[in-house]
Amino acid sequence: MPGGRLTQQERQRIAAGLTDGLSYAEIARRLGRPTSTVTREVARNGGPGAYRPQQAHRATARRARRGTPAPPRTAGPAGGPAGEEDAGAEIVELAVRTGLPRMTARVHVDLLLSEDGRRTAAELVSRLRVSPASVSTAVNYLVDYGYVRRERDPLRRRDVYVVDDQAWYHSVVLNTRQTLETARAAAAVVETVGHDSPVGRRLSKAGAFLERVSLDILESADRWRDVLE
């Protein structure tokens, strides 16, 4: 497996992989590099939507000329293994690419990587080194969308946030039902503006598509729910 700095050819292959919609893990596998190398390379050079190999190569050369050494990566920000941090960072970036707010993604990933899938708000604040308000906003979002559930610890009188296998089922169902509501709202607008109007025809098609896809997803989620048990 190659070591050292990325070459310009490797950066061009990273750009091509991003254009093709490949995951960081797949790009890294094709390069024979650790996934964390690709994740850091893209993150520090504009992100997946703005990564340019030539600019990235020149920027790296400028940083090297300035002689700024990279900090040793022997542990995560809260004392966890560096490998765990790298894996978490990649999942966070993928979640952000799908539209999840970055802080929300960080909280979700930290819960996913916890041994028992449980953290208190204080633990999240300490591990992520962010404000209690940031954690509160993130966990409220995750609870609202079914990714996490809130439990009460009666002994210590504080909330515990939990992610378990069934959370995937609940989040899929909750989000799909919201899409189904959108589809049915579109159908209601069609009744108002008329089926034969340009707006009516457009919304009618969109609503029918979203409704049918949503019903398929709900049926599939119920059919495969036992995989999570």
Rank of each mutant, 00 (worst) to 15 (best):
S23T: 15
Y24T: 11
A25G: 07
A25Y: 02
I27G: 06
A28H: 03
R29A: 15
L31P: 00
G32E: 11
R33H: 08
P34S: 06
T35F: 03
T35L: 05
S36I: 07
T39L: 09
R40K: 15
E41Q: 13
E41T: 07
V42W: 00
A43V: 13
A50T: 07
A50F: 09
Y51H: 07
R52E: 14
P53V: 04
P53D: 05
P53K: 06
Q54V: 12
Q54C: 02
Q55P: 06
A56L: 07
H57I: 02
R62I: 13
R63F: 08
R63L: 15
A64E: 15
A64M: 14
A64F: 13
R65N: 09
R65V: 13
R66W: 12
G67Q: 12
T68M: 15
P69S: 15
P69A: 15
A70R: 13
P71G: 02
P71Q: 13
P72A: 13
R73Q: 13
G76L: 07
G76D: 05
P77Q: 11
A78D: 12
A78M: 01
G80W: 03
P81T: 11
P81Y: 04
P81M: 08
A82F: 02
E84G: 09
D86Q: 07
D86E: 13
A87P: 01
G88A: 14
G88P: 04
A89Y: 04
E90W: 08
I91P: 01
V92S: 01
E93C: 06
L94E: 14
A95Y: 12
V96D: 04
V96S: 08
T98K: 10
L100Q: 04
P101S: 06
P101T: 03
T104C: 04
T104S: 08
A105N: 02
R106Y: 01
V107L: 02
H108L: 15
L111S: 01
L113G: 02
L113H: 09
S114C: 02
S114W: 00
D116F: 11
D116N: 10
D116S: 09
G117L: 05
G117S: 10
R118I: 06
R118Y: 00
R119H: 09
R119M: 08
R119K: 14
T120M: 01
T120S: 14
T120I: 04
L124K: 01
V125N: 03
S126F: 10
L128T: 03
